[in-house]
Design a protein around this nucleic acid. Structure first.
Lengths: 335, 335
DNA sequence: CTGAAAGCGCTTACAG
DNA sequence: CTGAAAGCGCTTACAG
């Protein structure tokens, strides 16, 4: 690879001048600019981003810390949005091999040693020490689905509470009264918001809250199966269940069918996410749509704004959710 | 962030000595090593990977060029394998915002300007000029599902041909004679191998090849729908169809059911990939299993071996495939 | 065993 | 408008 020195020599100017041409400084005569451009062309010179970063302090790299498997559809869609937003931004994306479980490991150190310009974080526990360190570090950060903020840290999430509220109302309007909720991981912000939405829905429907109708899980297919099994063992099983994820809803449906019942004939099921498979699955899944792709896009757009200006206020954004009605919910009918 | 100079000053030694301690050179007295280590501890010093890379020429970064949406389950699983293999390797992963459609763009330049140590490529057309450039560049490369090699470029793929062969044999053994093949994109190595496997299967079953039983697609759900519609319009539609991907198989099943027929009652369907959803889908999809995760892992392991030693011969590896029988295939029965 | 110096490929005041 | 020099944070012969 040709270096800036080679270009300077070829063009018969100093490296400082070459640098000015590369960076579009105005104070270069048209004549030398031409000479330099020709030399660049001739040598197929490309500035070394790494070396540049060493002096400017910018790496044109944003990092992602995603502590959830890529095979999770939510993660895929988020990443796809992130990728899209990055496409013509000049930034590349770095996935850090973070050793979050190693006590001697510091995520902030890792970012700094890589010179990252900013980072988006998803799927890390809020009380992991890295989160606080990150906020204090001053590294521009966007948290996805985590209500943390800082001098240079914003966040973005879906209208979780209202989403579940809508789902419960939908079931209520279909005549259901025994509506259960398959929750996520207690303590996680997303889980708390959705749980609140569940209670909102019951309240506006004048349905009393029953503790045995709320079971926790981890958003996975298997946790849907486990949770539903518990609900089916109740003396008075629910006639409808709202789930905190589509994958969990698939598990729930599986458990219901394995139990000899049908969806929506015997029990109605609502998911959350609206992943691609929700439409393909049988029955088609009624679910709360999240604009996950948009969340990915916006997280990057906002992050880049923060990177570009230290004055840009860290945003807190909420993406709307909406109810998508398919075949997994039906009017309640006494058997 | 403390720099090596700060540490040197704190420890009362030269930066060269600090460097030696960091890099575990043996020729440092135990006493000074202690002093330096203490200073490092005290200042919470972490070497700047970027600066180090500038002089060593190594960035401890491997790049991925993946020209397929992350939402594609194959891509997710591949990435998950890549991530796993990278976990404790010391390498981080960079996803380049490659502008492959921009004629002025050079992927190799991009890699070099980022100082990447190696790269894994997936989903790029073999005749894209970047491929040849990459091979010639000498940048250690692993191609996934593309039979390209070079001085420093190897590849890894699934036993595609035998996989489809097995699928056809399975159907033949179930009594099927009219077996169609929903192919991928003509010209792509993977497609050609699988198509050859289809022909192998017909041949070993003494079934004549019919051109109208092979229709092309692009691996997507929609292309499955389109392809199956064409097959259903034939005077003599097939009684079984082998698909080049699970997503396409889902589309095929959808088209069959929309046409008023059932799977496997009227038509048997086999997929390829064995993505997570193949098991959840109804009917459970009979499919060819690919060890996608293993491909991701091995692509990185081999890549790192190539990076570590210029003498390491670029590998050509083939992962075994296997037939997973579920509910979408059944014995042929005259209606 | 230790350190001064050159250098990796750039940018940035600053002087002219 | 142009360029010499210092410096970003490191490593690497090399001399002592």
């Amino acid at each position: 690879m040709a270096s800036i020195h080679d270009v300077a020599k070829e063009a018969g100017v100093s490296v400082a001048t070459v640098s000015k041409v590369i960076n579009h400084y105005p104070d270069v005569s048209e004549k030398t600019r031409k000479k330099v451009k020709n030399a660049i062309e001739l040598l197929r010179y490309r500035p070394n981003v790494i070396a540049r970063g060493l002096v400017t302090g910018r790496s044109w790299t944003v990092g992602v810390l995603i502590n959830i498997p890529f095979t999770n559809p939510y993660v895929s869609m988020l990443l796809e949005g992130i990728k899209t937003a990055l496409e013509n931004s000049g930034y590349d994306l770095m996935r850090l091999s973070a050793r979050l479980n190693d006590p001697g490991y510091s995520f902030v150190d890792h970012c700094q040693s890589r010179n990252l310009d900013g980072v988006v974080v998803f799927g890390v526990e809020k009380d992991h020490h890295s989160i606080q360190e990150l906020i204090e570090s001053g590294i521009p950060t966007m948290f996805v689905d985590m209500d943390a903020t800082g001098q240079r840290a914003g966040n973005i999430t879906t209208e979780n509470r209202n989403g579940v509220h809508m789902a419960v109302r939908h079931l209520y309007e279909l005549g259901h009264q025994r509506i259960a909720y398959l929750a996520g991981v207690p303590g996680q912000p997303v889980n708390e918001s959705r749980l609140a939405g569940y209670r909102d829905g019951l309240e506006t429907s004048s349905i009393p809250y029953r503790e045995d109708y709320v079971v926790n899980g981890d958003y996975s297919y298997d946790s849907g199966i486990q949770g539903m099994r518990m609900l089916l063992q109740l003396d008075q099983p629910p006639t409808a269940v709202v789930c905190t994820s589509d994958m969990a809803a698939f598990g729930v449906i599986h458990a219901i069918e394995a139990h000899g019942l049908s969806v929506p004939g015997d029990i109605s099921v609502v998911g959350f996410d609206n992943i691609y498979e929700a439409e393909l699955f049988k029955p088609g899944l009624t679910t709360i749509n999240q604009n996950i792709h948009a969340i990915g896009v916006k997280s990057i757009e906002e992050l880049i704004s923060m990177i570009k200006s230290a004055e840009y206020p860290p945003p807190v954004v909420t993406e709307p959710s909406s109810l998508v009605i398919r075949e997994s919910t039906a009017r309640y009918s006494e058997q």
